[in-house]
Every structure is written in C-alpha cells, then in structure tokens.
C-alpha cells in the first residue's frame, strides 16, 4: 500500500494545471488521428494484397493499432492513468477475462469451420461455388421481394 500517502480527500481542490492538461489532450489527439490514418491506409491496402499469410499479418497489425488507440482513450481521455493504482486494478483486472474469451471462442469457431468442411461435403461444396454479383443498388428494383423475404 505504498500509495496511501498520496491520498487526499475528494473534495479537496488539488492543484490543476489547465495548460499542461490541454497540451496532453492535443498530443493524444494527434496520436489518435495518426494511428487512425495508418489503420485506414492498411485497410485500404488490403484490397491489393492476395497472399493469405500477408493479409493476416496486416490484419494483425491493424488489431494492435486498435488496442493502442483503446489504451490512449482510456488512459488519457478517460483519465484512468491518473487514478490511484488500486482503482485501476479493479477495472483492468476483470477485463483480462477477454483474453480467455477471445482465445476460446475464436478457436471454437475455427474448429467448427473445420468440422463442417470435413464432415459436411455439401456445405463445403456450396461455400466454394461462385455466385452472380448483383449490381450496385440492385435491391431498389426488387422491393416486392425484400418485404419479409428471409430466405
């Protein structure tokens, strides 16, 4: 409990440097904008990449950038970085459950795909059959079909 001595009463007006906070906000804004631009460039680039492994790599990079953005929003905009460590832990530690969620559920989805492809040849065949590409805005011409048609 090394941070107990830092505790003050909430109502106590701790000194607040508006200019410094303003600078921090501007810095974070620039960082978030730059990361977003990089993400968009990568997302755009994905149109021209064919290699399966390389596509996954780029998608992985985008996800890492997404986590970086999340960190900056939570730490600086939501000010969590400046709260007491114990409070940060009560919020961040439960969120670690997401690590397990992601690993378990995505692995399960992938496994289900493999099972279907292995044991359901009809499904596999259907999912490999090319379809006719509908024209852009084709939905507008067949309004009658759209109503309640769920296939």
């Amino acid at each position: 409990m090394d941070n107990l001595h830092e505790l003050q009463e909430v109502t106590h007006h701790h000194e607040f440097d508006r200019e410094a906070s303003r600078k921090e906000v501007m810095r974070v804004t620039v960082i978030l904008s730059v990361i977003t631009l990089i993400e968009l460039a990568l997302g755009f680039w994905l149109m021209y990449i064919d290699g399966e492994f390389f596509r996954l790599l780029i998608k992985g990079v985008i996800c890492v950038l997404m986590l970086a953005k999340a960190f900056y929003i939570v730490a600086y905009f939501m000010h969590l970085k400046h709260e007491l460590r114990n409070m940060i832990m009560t919020i961040v530690v439960p969120l670690l459950l997401f690590v397990w969620f992601l690993v378990a559920f995505l692995y399960d989805g992938n496994s289900y795909k493999n099972l279907k492809n292995t044991y359901d040849p009809y499904h596999y065949e259907q999912s490999k059959t090319k379809a006719e590409k509908p024209a852009h805005g084709a939905g507008e011409t067949k309004d009658a079909k759209k109503e309640g048609s769920v296939e």
Binding site: L102, L106, D108, G109, K113
Partner: peptide
C-alpha cells in the same frame, strides 16, 4: 466506471460472437 466495465462486457460478448461466427465461415 463499473457500469462502463459491465457495458464493455456486453459489447465484448457481441463482438466475440461476431468473431466466432466469422471464424467458422469459409469466407
């Protein structure tokens, strides 16, 4: 903060089910 944490789990559940279905699809 605790409400937002619970809301994060709600959105997380949505997004993870999306991910699971996407991972189980061939394309």
């Amino acid at each position: 903060w605790y409400f937002l944490m619970s809301d994060a789990f709600t959105f997380g559940a949505f997004l993870i089910s999306y991910g699971t279905i996407r991972f189980s699809s061939n394309s």
